[in-house]
Amino acid sequence: MSNLPASLLLASVMLGLAACATVPEAADPPQQAPVAETGVAAAPAPELTLNLPSQSECACATPASRDYTFLERGYRALSEGDAVAALQHFQRYKRLEVEPAAQWEADIAIAYLGMLPDSPFYDHDAAEATFRRLVAQLTAEMQVHPTALLMRDSLAAFALLNRHISDLESSNATLREDLQKREEAIKRLRELTLGPSRAVQP
């Protein structure tokens, strides 16, 4: 080996190093499943999957939000005795909010104005007819303003009170008619008993 030229020896060493550099490293041996004491390989644990809907699949219905600004302004104007301003606010709320619950709230408030004797919009018959229609339209799914429910209860009380007043007026008319008939009967009885000339005396 000492007889080889130095350049040939250097070339041999370089080729050996290059060959070592290109040899791939041995891959790590595959991990084997742990062997139980019985000598049988344990089965791998199954992956847990949760059957949860993704955000894209969620069909959660969000309740429609309503702007109560004009409705509550109408309530405030009504509490201050300004029926005209209250009606304007209720009508504007009805135009802006198209949900059935909002329409019901506005209509019950307007009917309430028509039931108040001091209101310039007083019309008992029309207000009661509207009230009965709205009561039939209200469903459990409609989330309406608490003040609207109070107005509904007040309208029911107004309607009942007006029926009692009508009954009393009818009863009074009957009593007046009976009283007039009794007075005429007493007058005729006096005429028969005392004579026409004496019956007219006080």
Rank of each mutant, 00 (worst) to 15 (best):
S54W: 00
D123E: 12
R188E: 09
Q103R: 15
P196Q: 05
L149H: 08
P196M: 02
R133E: 15
Q143K: 14
A136F: 04
L48Q: 01
V13I: 12
G81Y: 05
S154Q: 15
A136E: 12
E99S: 15
L50A: 01
R176V: 12
A199Q: 02
L71W: 11
L9D: 11
S79T: 01
P44K: 00
D118Q: 13
L155I: 06
R176A: 14
P63N: 07
R152F: 07
V40Y: 01
D125C: 06
L87E: 06
M1T: 10
L78H: 05
P46M: 00
P30I: 01
T130E: 14
Q180V: 02
D125W: 04
R182L: 14
S119R: 09
L4M: 10
E72R: 10
A126H: 08
S197K: 05
L52F: 01
A159L: 02
Q32Y: 01
T174F: 09
E25N: 07
S171D: 12
A43R: 00
T174E: 15
A101T: 14
T62V: 09
V35W: 00
D153S: 15
A36D: 14
E184H: 01
L138Q: 13
Q32M: 05
L194F: 03
L192H: 00
Y112I: 03
A19H: 05
D153H: 09
D125N: 10
A140R: 09
A156D: 12
D118T: 08
M151S: 09
G195R: 02
L78N: 02
A26W: 06
L10Q: 15
I186W: 10
R92C: 04
E99R: 12
P46G: 00
E47P: 02
L179C: 10
T49K: 02
N172A: 13
T193R: 03
A21T: 10
P146D: 15
L161S: 11
L71P: 05
V13W: 08
S2A: 14
P24T: 10
E47N: 03
M14S: 15
Y75A: 06
D125T: 12
D82L: 03
T139C: 04
T62W: 08
T193I: 01
R66P: 03
V84I: 08
E99L: 06
W104A: 12
G114A: 06
D67M: 07
G81S: 04
R66K: 09
L116T: 08
